[in-house]
Amino acid sequence: MKRERTVVILTIVLAAMLVFAPFLPNWTMFLFTVALCYGIVVLGMMLLIRTGLVSFGHGLYYCLGAYAAGTLEPLFGITELAVMLGSAVAICAGVSAILALLLRRYRDIFFAMLSLAFSMILYGLLVKTSSLGSTDGFNVTVKTMLGVHIAGTAYERYLIFAVTALIAWVCAVLIHRYLNSHRGRLAEAIRDNELRVEYMGASVANTIHLNYVMSAILAGLGGALMAVSVGHIDPEMAYWTTSGEFVFISILSGTGSVLAPFLGATIFESIRSFAYEYSPNTWQMALGAAMLLVIMFLPGGLWSLFRRSGRSAM
């Protein structure tokens, strides 16, 4: 019942967003779109954290996904959203499947730092690549969505928001199902005791590999959706501070449910927007204070507010 309750809540939230979004001011719809994109990335982070791994380099896939989608127009003249998202998924899956061969051998700070190193390599490459705009990046355009022309129409912003929300819903439901499957349950078992998992006949390395690739795909999707929402990409997406934001939101959210990353991302984005609006010179202080409060009073993240017991309920 608990499993289905999560899917029902996700569906109700999705339906509410799709119905009420057209009545929201543009800036609010944009804020929710950005929060959903971040939420998708952090959903992947959550999968890794449940496996006992913290990546300080998920900006790599966030940026890779964005560039995989964005470069289709300058390279091939493609501006179809589905193809752009498909490209992000394929590139991130391919790159992560290769990098995971190395990363799955490391744990703790070594995993975190190695993943950070890979993201900074991409940052360095993009900064030096003038054909991709170097540090300035370039603009990304979506002209069609499943063949329907949307560029410049009155409902363009809403459609991008709706697609982002729908994809976020699909990702959340799939990850929720996965975490409750036999293989998904191994994530927490690996975090607790790798030796025992091997002595029960399961492969720790293969499970970490799979979870890492899934996490990278989610980060890539989040990056691609962010690229089409904002309409611009630059190498900052791979910079370590971007990866740090994902870690920040993960801690803020907690890992108790697939709903948590979206809640955390929405609160993070709201605090950042309002703090930037009302205190442009000290907005980082507001974020820092929020983090401090969460760590002091909700060490299990915001999601622990919704849990009755210490166990992961959803």
Binding site: H182, E188, A189, D192, N193, L195, R196, V197, Y199, A202
Partner: peptide
């Protein structure tokens, strides 16, 4: 299969979930 001198458990999981992990591995 083996057990250990110092029990090797999944400490944050419940007793039934500890066993369910094993059942799941066999089923998969």
């Amino acid at each position: 299969c083996r057990s250990f001198q110092i029990p090797q458990l999944f400490d944050t999981l419940s007793v039934s979930d500890n066993l369910l992990v094993g059942v799941g591995i066999v089923a998969s």
